[in-house]
Amino acid sequence: MIVVELSDRPGQLARIITPLAECGCNILNIHHVRELDREDTARVEISFEADDRVNVDTVVESLRREGIVIISYSPNIQTFRETVILIGHVFTTDITDTIIQIANSGIQVASVDARITLIEEVSSVKMVLQSNSEEKLSKGIELLKQICKKKNLYLIRSVRE
């Protein structure tokens, strides 16, 4: 993410788009932070993604050459995620407790989806687990494995290609 300061007049945003495109960046989000505006300037946060070959310093340098004032910048924060499915008596073994245990380990449960059959039958729950660190995500998955073993749930993980 890069935060820049632009003069608050028409056409300024266009000045940052071309250098970013030339560096091979794909803009994800542009946010005008109005509360940080001064009299005649606008603070703008730009989030972008690019492959490993693009260095954030090169991108910043090319913006500076355009005369753009850089307030701050940081490399994109990567997100690691894995989709998993649990099969078994997910509800009678307290799915909320399962989710809370995972969340407490510091990884995010980004979404939960379920197929419920009769309460006494086995059901399926799909979860997307998410973290900004690959290591944390692996630890979360390890914890989930232990929980599944304890609660006699059948865990299906995703495969990394």
Binding site: T83, A114, R115, V122, S124, K126, Y154, I156, S158, V159
Partner: peptide
């Protein structure tokens, strides 16, 4: 043996298939 059609359907919804992999 424990895989259910419901689990397969949940996977399909997000663009996944369930396969028996050796790793």
């Amino acid at each position: 043996r424990d895989i259910t059609p419901e689990a397969i359907e949940l996977a399909r919804k997000d663009g996944f298939l369930i396969k028996h992999l050796a790793i």
